[in-house]
């Protein structure tokens, strides 16, 4: 059962990950700083998922990237493009309504349980 639960949870989280990452990229971030930022908000992300995800977002032109070599360690920074911002705002709206609907439905369920 716990295996099934795990895979269902992973599936549930997978879709929200893109949204979470996009939300943090309004200011430029590099890989590790993004991990830290998400962790502060309580979102743990599998790192082997995150780095490929960033590449994919770049390929889809939602984010743009640039290498910063001014510091001792070169870092690749990612930031939302204009197009990415537009998509992010729409996606956010969608998510808000989805979570509201889901909240309502789960809430009803809970009340029924109490009765």
């Amino acid at each position: 059962m716990s295996n099934l639960l795990d895979s269902l949870t992973t599936e549930l989280r997978r879709g929200t990950l893109t949204l979470a990452v996009l939300s943090q990229l309004r200011t430029p971030q590099y890989g590790y700083s993004l991990v830290q930022l998400l962790k502060e908000s309580g979102i743990t992300i599998d790192q082997s998922t995150l780095y490929p995800l960033l590449r994919r977002l770049e390929k889809q032109e939602l984010v743009s990237s640039s290498w910063d070599t001014s510091e001792s360690r070169p870092r690749k920074y990612y930031v939302l493009s204009d197009y990415g911002l537009e998509i992010f705002l729409k996606l956010k709206e969608d998510w808000m309504s989805i979570s509201k609907e889901l909240y309502t439905i789960l809430r009803e369920d809970e009340e029924n349980d109490v009765d």
């Binding site: 700083s33 082997s48 780095y51 870092r75």
Partner: peptide
Amino acid sequence: LELRSTIEDMLPGEYSEEDVKEVLNTLG
């Protein structure tokens, strides 16, 4: 290049082989 800088970001300033293994384990 990105992977190396990320791994180094994850490591403490002075690190042992154990630290490296732990970081690589999180990367999977």
